[in-house]
């Protein structure tokens, strides 16, 4: 008998509407354990709603989400101890120091040997110079490093990243990507990355799913997609997909009575 590891993330026929808007429409994909999947799509494509359903924050109308072989949101409580996320669209309390924030989140995730873990992350993410500074006094780059340290506190098996390098300068963004590569290499964690930064996706992701209008427009490994579309970069592929979709929508509109 051949044993195939269950995917770390399995999404089947996932659907969600908000009123008349179909935000996610029959999404099906899998992320193998230890792989990095890029979730691409324009604004309103359904990325955030999908991530919300993966975290159990949004209840789907239809379909299932299975993470590490467990049902989300049915086993949300147990799963969230093995997951974490990072997004520039949430902050940590500004009045607390970096060390205090990491202590609070470490306790929420019940991280063993927390003091040592924080010291380790402070070394890895070069937080030492501002570990006792209030989070509200940090630069954007420093905040991202702290947010990533928080996301890795519990050494998650599944890590969700929502535009982790948005608004960072190229040097800091490159530094963050290197840390993520290190994390993946040392832990074998599964990562789902939502990003508009195509070079970042090309560098970090094994596979990508391109969303539009809540559906999968295309998917595959970045190199395969580039080859299949006859392009040089993933950004050009993304633009091809977006323009093709716009053209189809315009054609549909013209044929309507």
């Amino acid at each position: 008998m051949i044993e195939i590891a269950a995917p770390a993330i399995a999404v089947r026929d996932l659907g969600k509407s908000f009123g008349a808007v179909r935000a996610v429409d029959g999404l099906t994909f899998e992320v193998g354990a230890g792989r990095v999947l890029g979730l691409l799509g324009g604004n309103g494509a359904g990325k955030t709603t999908t991530i919300g359903m993966l975290m159990g924050l949004i209840l789907p109308d239809s379909g299932t989400v299975t993470i590490l072989g467990r049902d989300m949101p049915g086993e949300r409580a147990a799963l969230l101890e093995a997951m974490n996320f990072e997004s520039p669209y949430v902050d940590m309390p500004h009045r607390l120091t970096v060390r205090q924030n990491l202590t609070v989140f470490g306790r929420l995730y019940r991280v063993p040997a927390l003091t040592e873990r924080i010291a380790r992350l402070a070394a890895d993410f070069e937080l030492g110079a501002f570990l006792d500074r209030k989070a509200g006094q940090l630069s954007a780059g420093q905040k991202t490093r702290v947010a990533l340290a928080k996301a890795l506190l519990n050494q998650p098996k599944v890590l969700l990243l929502d535009e982790p390098t948005a608004s960072l300068d190229p040097d800091t963004a490159d530094w963050v990507r290197t840390r993520l590569e290190d994390f993946r290499a040392t832990t074998g964690a599964t990562i789902l990355l939502a990003s508009h930064n195509m070079p970042e996706v090309e560098r970090l992701c094994d596979d990508v799913v391109i969303l539009a209008g809540g559906r999968i427009e295309d998917h595959g490994a970045p190199d395969d997609l580039i080859r299949r579309y006859g392009r040089d970069t993933l950004e050009e592929v993304f633009l091809d997909v977006a323009r093709r979709r716009r053209a189809l929508a315009a054609a549909d509109a013209e044929t309507l009575p």
Binding site: E3, A5, A6, L68, G69, R70, E75, E81, A82, R110
Partner: peptide, 22 residues
């Protein structure tokens, strides 16, 4: 094909009320 859930550290305790988190 194996579909057994992966073990999660302290999964049972995770679902219980935690004074540590409070």
């Amino acid at each position: 094909m194996t579909n057994a859930p992966e073990p999660i550290r302290g999964a049972r305790a995770a679902t219980a009320f935690s004074p540590t988190r409070v």
